[in-house]
Structures are given as C-alpha cells and as structure tokens.
Design a protein around this nucleic acid. Sequence first.
RNA 1: GGGUCGGUAGCUCAGUCGGUAGAGCAGCGGACUUUUAAUCCGUUGGUCCCGAGUUCGAAUCUCGGCCGACCCA
Length: 501
Amino acid sequence: MSNPEQQAPVQQDENQLIAERRAKLAEWRKAGKAFPNDFQRENTAAKVIEGYGEKSAEELEGLPVEVKLAGRMMLKRVMGKASFATIQDLSGRIQIYITRDRVGEEVYADFKTWDLGDIIGVTGILMKTKTGELSIQAAEIRLLTKSLRPLPDKFHGLADQEMKYRQRYVDLIMNEETRFTFRARSAIVASIRNYMTGHGFMEVETPMMHPIPGGASAKPFVTHHNALDMQQFLRIAPELYLKRLVVGGFEKVFEINRNFRNEGLSPRHNPEFTMMEFYEAYANYHTLMDFTEGLLRHTAREALGKEVFVYQGRELDLSKPFHRLTICQAIQRQHPEFNDAELADAEFLKAKIKHFGEPLKPGGIGSLQLQLFEACAEAQCWEPTFIIDYPVEVSPLARASNTNPEITERFELFIVGREIANGFSELNDAEDQAARFQEQMKAKDAGDEEAMYYDADFIRALEYGLPPTGGCGIGIDRLIMLLTDAAAIRDVILFPSMRPE
RNA sequence: GGGUCGGUAGCUCAGUCGGUAGAGCAGCGGACUUUUAAUCCGUUGGUCCCGAGUUCGAAUCUCGGCCGACCCA
C-alpha cells in the first residue's frame, strides 16, 4: 500500500541563489572533474590547532609543517590577489590563506566563484597571521562538493525552531551548541554502556514488534505483518522479554533501545524515545536504587566531566546522596500540614487532589496518594529523589511488599521534577502475576485503554521460575536533557517526530 | 482542547495612521596581497502563510483556516 501524497514530487523551492549555484555546478561538470573522491585528508582542524596553535610565526616558518585537510567553507573573505576562508570539519574550524601567487591564477579565479557551504580540500603549510591566528597557507586547493543551497545567515545562524528539527543537517552545520548536545548524547550512552558491561551486564536486543504489547501502561502503535497476516504492535517496553531472559539464565541483562507510545507530542514526550532497561537476578529495589545512583553519577562524570550541573538556570547536584522518600513523606515534605491520618483518608485525598486542580482518577487509597503526590509534590522534586512504595494497583509487574500487601517494592526517580527512572523488585510469583494480569484485563474491559494485556507466554516463562530479580528502566532522552541543559526532548533527539511538511 | 505570541527576500529581521515593500547578510558586477561577521562602490531578488470580508485602496483592519513556539488542561 502506498500513499499517493507521499509519491507526489516534492515541490522544488528553487530560487535565484540556487540557480546561480546550479550554473556554477554545470560549469564544473563541463570541466570534467565534478565531485571527485580521491582527496585523502591527513589532518583535522582541532588536531592541527592543538598541535601547533601555540607555536610562534617564526617557529612555524622554521619547521615548516605541511597539512592536508578538508571541510565545509563557512566564511570567505576575498581580496584582489589574496583571500581568507574558514572551513569547518567534524572537529572544528580553521582558517585558510589563499594567494593567487601560490595557487595559480586559474585556481584563484575558480576559488572566487566557490560559495559558502561548498566542501573544499586544501594542502598547505601552517602559518600565523599578523593577529596570531593559526592558518593554512594553501599550496593547493580543490572544490570537492558543490553545495546548491545557500546556508542560513553566517552570523545569526538558524533561528527557526521548526527548521532546526526538520532540517537537522542544517542545524548541525550552523550551530555548535547542537553539535555539542548530540556529541554529549553519544558520550552519555557510551558511558552508560561502559558502566553496565563493567558491572557484568550483558547487552541484548529483544523484539521491537510484539504480538501483545506489554511491560508498561500505554497506547501502542499498531501495524500488520503481511506474511503471517497478523496484527503486531511496536513495543511500548522491553520488560517482559528481558525477564524471560533472566528466566533463561542470563542473570544480568540490559537493553538500550527505542520504545514507541502512541501519545501526543510535548516538550517532554516524543512518540519514539530511548529507554535503558536492566535486570539483575538476586537484586532488589534497594540495591537497584544504589546501583542507579552510581550509574548516573558515573555517567555524568565520565561523559561530561562533572557532577554539578546547571539546568535551566538552577543548580543540579548529582554528587550528593539522592533522597529516598515514600509517597506520603514526599507529600508531607511539601505540605507538612497534612497529617498521617488525613493522608490515609480517601475523602481528604480526593478533596485535596481537586484543590490542586487535577482531574480525579478512580482508585484506592494508594492510587489517591499517588495522584496527590503528582498534583502537589512531584514537580518540587528538583534534587534527585527516589519515591518509594508504589501502590499495587498501579504496579502490575512489581513484587508486593512483605509488610504491606497494598504496596510494592518499587521506586521512581525524580530529578528536576521529572520522572527519570522506574524500578522495582520484580514479581516472580507466576500465580500472582497471572492474577494481576486478570485484574488488568478487567480494567481494559471497563474501558481503560492503557491497561495491560494477558501475556500467557510470559506467565509460562515465570512458571519455569524467575529468580528473585530487580529491574529498572531509565529514560535516556530525559537524562540527556538534564545533562545537556535542554528544555525540550526534541532538542536531544536528532530527528524528532514532526507533522509532515 | 483552551490561552498568548508569531508566519514579510535564500537567512536574520524592520515596516508608523490603511496609500501598493525595506535593511543587514547571502548572490551578481567592480576595487582590494594579512582578513576575522573583512571593507568600499554598484546591483538582482517578494504568492507579505492561505481564503473571504471591509475599503477608492490591505503586509497593516475584521472573520475563517493552515503552520509553529510557549503556557495551561
């Protein structure tokens, strides 16, 4: 099946500037050497500057150092017989000095026709300008790729938020801050992997397409498998598959991958987002909290080199021990006027939830306490805070507490008022799990679209015996937002979901 | 879903009281052998988001729609 609208030719937004560049490209083709791929660079801008930036003009003259590099031309200052250009490669920028006498009259004339955005290769020796900027005095210079589209204003850059997301390639060309964010993202994910594998965890990949969506409460994307003629769901969480692996004897596993939830877009929600989930046999929610705390601190230190950050203008310190509070303690931290008896009274809780302007969802005491927490205390958890002891009714996959069957051995971690992680001692009693799925089925029949399905194979797996296990999910995009001071999830996802153009 | 703000040249943005479109950058032509957002002279370029209305006349006012950002739900 194909959507005819998607096949319609894209309307060409041609203009005078593009036409000029196409004409230049046509000339280049005529010369017979367009789009060469035989230029082998030997250096990058940052390495060259790191190695020789401190050398004096005389020292450089005495060496001399020949370099060969390539990049996109970002600035160009042409004079009659000599020019400067600034090229940008993956590492940074460096200035080139081009004189007609050295490169030859013909090449110099060609160079004058090259445009900002073109990709050029240069060979030359290092020099210092009279203002002390390390530059490459070009012996040879070549056009490697013609850029047909003009770049945004060289000084103001790309300001249009929508264009930054839709044409991320332009954002990356123009904006050092964007490049930093996504390099940081890469480093953060790498650090997490290091920590996990360093602690004996094995990285696995479990299905992205599920016959039954499970492992979380969320609306799934639905698709269809033609050969099997069956409905499939993009996964909303990998949890049930990872626990099957622990049953199988892979006692420490993790997965970093995409989840898909069929929900709206917001500064904190993208329909596809990245989660890490990890499971460890013989761990429980207390040891998980210790581990998660260590993981975040390690990641901050290794990937960003610090543990104290500024997020949206306010300090965030990951070096101090994370708070651990029950739901009621967290409410009382914000509202000491609420006493224990009141927080155990359904009518009181309902009244307060309404008072804080939240819609009231049906549920028992535990659920009401959680709703009140979300209404009046969650956003105030700026410093890292584990909220513990979630009610059974909202935790269908978590092990119940030994001391109170109404609550589970579960935590959520909040930082800057946002949920970052969710973990618990796993429910490994197959019969209890089957009963919980039955409850979820009832809720689904009663109209709760986000209630879970009954997963018979998962129950069968538990019946073989899941060791006592702890598991935790960490929202990678949100973690990256924290560490890179990004206000919106779209700023940490290279190609965020957008309405089609 | 509601509210606020916005959509004007390739980019960044002005546009007064409603009188028919401006700047900088980029481009094009010219000058210029150490520039730093180079400079100087000249110059091309517009579906003013779309549609309707009011008006002699709409980028501007009104209504409807589309798109985006932010806030709220």
